[in-house]
Design a protein around this nucleic acid. Structure first.
Lengths: 329, 329
DNA sequence: CATCATCGTGCAAACGATTTCAGACTGGCT
DNA sequence: AGCCAGTCTGAAATCGTTTGCACGATGATG
């Protein structure tokens, strides 16, 4: 038998209405009564029933978070960011994992939407059409993708690529490969585009390879094609792919970075744990998550903001041991 | 303006009560009316409001999941298991991350407990005392820990250790080290105890080193002590620690497995991604999560079961490339 | 001193479902 | 024909909050 607002009311000698006001709109009640109420509430350990409140206010105090695959080490960082930012504002987080199934995404959004005030949609794989549809039904903030005017947090892929290429160029590389990620991935298209425009007219040849799955196995699969391309450096779609490359190069006896330099993207924790450690372009995972919640909460308070709700976070080159001078063949 | 039970009632030409019954207790309404109701509900896309239902039934249809640190790659697998099993029974999952703060755990449990029917507590770090306290207030299932009669899922650490030692013994190792994890960790104590009892009287010397943090850095920190111990093989508390060892051995120029064999525990995805890939004792992460939810749901249906709610899952040796024959010095 | 805001509070009606209870109808049995 | 048991349905109460409205008290104003 949990303690309800009535218990508090009785204990404080006021009506339930007053208790409610004292706790949610303190300005409306006299200082002295408010104090009495607060004391009674504290004493009884009163916690308002969220379901009941939600029923009448129409707000749940929950947000939903949908990720493609939690075992991809990029996402846990984002989830933590979402988590902690949400908790700061007393929101709880529903988590759902789509298992990389693009068709499941829309369904999950709809299922969750009844129980939350808004949804953070991380790296959605679904079609633009579906995306627009669900964005029309529920407050949504996207992470790592940009579609039309839908509120979104992205990172500066172009600048990240520019830093990466500058680094490789400084090391003397003149012919580099890009191991592309999934065709459906917005980030992949962005990065490929940025690479083309940055290398164009800079005296650096770009060889595009793939598409490959954004996973370790994808890198393994791509490795021999990279070797055949006759490049001195390779930029992978993400760290997982880069780790796959690294692994296969190791078993093939190809020395990194002496024979070939390898770069990733994301800066997942693993990239420091392998040897050679992986040079990569860091995406600030927790900040991305936090920024997503920030934006979502703003949107909930003031839906008109949606028109300008787009934010781009900086990316940063992390130089480690998988890149080095181009071999002087 | 979402569609309510009244809308369905009107469309079907019956009362709200009948709609409710038709949808939740079909046996109670005539086949023909039930059909009418179902059709109307489908047509309008009716989804019962969970908050309203919860208000009267006292059940939320949600479960809480608390993990110490989502960026520890062991946990995402568990979370996925919890996720998918919960979804099968139409439960949604609240996720909370304690950031490895043992004192935050109890608070989080209490905060969540109002919004969920039960909680899955993964690898809790809090004191036994706190644990018993919260277990008394809310339905709880623990993962990877056993305390008194609290419902719990664990894996067979003893058998895992036995497999590990048998493997090493077969390779000729006669002196092995154990790099211990956190003193507070139940799993760590279990594994250490199992190692002692399995090696005792088997002609194998055991050297215990540590405690160390259950992370990559912990392994790095332990590496030189391991080398100094004059062993030919080392078993780490978990894979992360093993990866730390591997990494430091690599930079020290110590060849694995030629000079020393390294084993981990958990089988996180990373262990296949490094080279040499890591021999380890697999804990079935998704099954652990699923089993936890299974048990929790059973408990909710029939709280008397709590007395016998304890389950142990098998562990399994995964032999990869970080272990080999003992050097024949 | 009458009038009028203003303030603080309580009453009661919501919110959207479930569930108890009672009534209407059917059919079988005496 | 009368009665009873059994089915099916609807009315109304309920869960724990929030909130519009009305009311009384207070203080300011002319």
């Amino acid at each position: 038998m949990p303690v309800t607002i009535k218990d508090v009311a009785r204990a404080a000698g006021v009506s339930p209405s007053t208790v409610s006001r004292a706790l949610t709109t303190p300005a409306l009640v006299q200082a002295e009564t408010r104090l009495r109420v607060e004391r009674a509430a504290a004493e009884l350990g009163y916690q308002p029933n969220r379901a009941a409140r939600g029923l009448i206010t129409g707000r749940t105090g929950n947000i939903g978070l949908i990720v493609p695959d939690l075992t991809n080490p990029f996402f846990p960082g984002v989830v933590k960011g979402v988590q902690s930012r949400a908790r700061e504002s007393d929101f709880s987080v529903f988590l759902a994992d789509t298992d990389e199934d693009p068709t499941a995404e829309a369904g999950l959004v709809r299922a969750l939407s009844k129980q939350v005030d808004g949804i953070v949609l991380c790296s959605p794989r679904m079609t633009e059409e579906d995306l627009r549809a669900v964005a029309g039904e529920t407050p949504i903030v996207m992470l790592n993708r940009r579609v039309g005017q839908i509120p979104a947090i992205t990172i500066d892929n172009v600048d990240g690529i520019r830093q990466a290429v500058a680094h490789l160029a400084a090391l003397g590389h003149r012919r580099i490969a890009y191991v592309a990620g999934p065709r459906l991935s917005w980030s992949n298209r962005e990065r490929a585009r940025a690479l083309r425009s940055v290398t164009a007219g800079s005296g650096i040849d770009l060889v595009e390879i793939g598409n490959f799955a954004p996973q370790f196995a994808g890198g393994v699969a791509a490795a021999d094609q990279v070797l055949a391309a006759g490049v001195t450096a390779v930029v992978a779609y993400n760290d997982l792919v880069a780790l796959g490359l690294l692994n296969w190069f190791a078993t093939r006896g190809v020395k990194v970075p002496e024979a070939i330099s390898v770069m990733g993207f994301d800066d997942i924790v693993l990239s420091q744990m392998v040897s050679p450690s992986l040079t990569t372009v860091a995406q600030p995972q927790e900040p991305i998550g936090r920024a997503g919640v920030d934006m979502l909460l703003q949107l909930l308070e003031d839906p008109d903001r949606a028109a300008v709700a787009r934010r781009e976070l900086p990316s940063q080159l992390m130089v480690r041991h998988s890149t080095g001078h181009a071999p002087t063949t």
